[in-house]
Amino acid sequence: MIHTTTDDAGITVIRPGFERLTAANAKAFKDDVTAIIEGGEAQLVVDFKDVSFVDSSGLGALVGVLKKIGYRGDLAVSGLNADVAQMFKICRMDRVFKTHASVNDAVEKMAENL
């Protein structure tokens, strides 16, 4: 179950709500975020601060969300721990997603580009 907050600039921070984003919950995550996008939100930060592990299905769901946003908005990720950052790196996802150390950094950078 994801948790979201949207600020005055229209930037929505999403916390996956799972300690592990894997095949067991990746589809639910993608479906929940897709519903948010279809509800009109398109400036998204996914904060992984409380996520300890992401598998290839979790990354696939994130890619699906990125494609859903398309050119309508922006997607960044924040708070990757060492293992999750390594997973992004070996799957070349560090070349696909904008990553930030903290959710505040991500929101600040996204706001500058609005």
């Binding site: 990354l59 070996i90 070349r92």
Partner: peptide
Amino acid sequence: SLDDVDPLAESGRGLGLIMQC
């Protein structure tokens, strides 16, 4: 190979991950 997977593919990385790790 993870180098050969389309960066925007939503699947197809699992086996390559096993072979790499």
